[in-house]
Design a protein around this nucleic acid. Structure first.
Lengths: 138, 138
DNA sequence: TTGCGTGCAAAGGTTTTGCATGGCA
DNA sequence: TGCCATGCAAAACCTTTGCACGCAA
């Protein structure tokens, strides 16, 4: 975990917060700071992104092994209450779910499958209704 | 698409059909056939797996960019029985769920929250029971 | 015979790791 | 002062591509 509060960590987190609902790759982050004249090493970017994912502030999404992984800030707007996220793969919308029924999902999986879900770390990927009807009637 | 019916394609498909509901990496496939004395080149394995995914016979799951992609035979009935995945954040175990009750989750979110989950892209992150009891009693 | 499939090797690109240096507490 | 974080370089890794040969039709 991050024990020190360094400039790089602050800058990285702040940058991610300025592009909400957007998927950013590690290369994007590096390019952004290089363009600002305050370059951050590739390894540092990866290390911080991994930390932020562990802390539940950032979500990591992998499309396939060949292309780079995408990261997105999801920390804000949830408060203390645990909440799930849905990310539309088409329009990029990020939907927050504060729903008691979803607790049933966690209980079922814990009881039947021996696994405890961490809602902060989990993102449901799919398609929202608006994009779905668009796909059906293009 | 595959135009010729070659031995490699038959062997690969048949192997996948003998391990239904199981996750197999490209390396696993290569190792299996190498152990049988009838090795198949890595490139060929990747090319066929990609074809089979395009044909809808096989599903490809990418959990994270660092580890290899997983493949699974799903036959023709694609989408009827979605397969969800749980990834343990502690030991890295990958649990795959073929569970009808999880379909209820998808329906609930679709009906109440206007979102259609794509099981191929969604991974539940959390902690498996073994690691959980270890954390409780270190 | 024609053209795709195969396999080896090499390339491509992403992500991780080692190690010395610099910065936070 | 004692660690931790950083950054450069190099390694490790999975996956894709190029090219010559072999096999299916």
């Amino acid at each position: 975990m991050s024990q020190y509060k360094t400039k790089q960590r602050e800058a990285l987190l702040q940058y991610l917060m300025t592009v909400p609902g957007e998927h950013v790759t590690a290369a994007d982050v590096c390019a952004h700071f290089r363009g600002q004249g305050a370059a951050i090493g590739t390894a540092t970017v990866y290390r911080h992104l991994e930390n932020l994912v562990d802390e539940g502030l950032v979500s990591k999404y992998v499309i396939d092994g060949a292309s780079p992984a995408c990261f997105e800030y999801i920390g804000g707007g949830c408060g203390d209450e645990p909440c799930f996220h849905c990310k539309c793969l088409r329009c990029g919308a990020l939907i927050h779910l504060h729903c008691g029924e979803l607790a049933g999902l966690g209980q079922h999986i814990a009881a039947e499958h021996g696994f405890t879900i961490d809602p902060m770390r989990t993102v449901f990927y799919g398609v929202c209704d608006a994009c779905r009807s668009e796909e059906a009637h293009p």
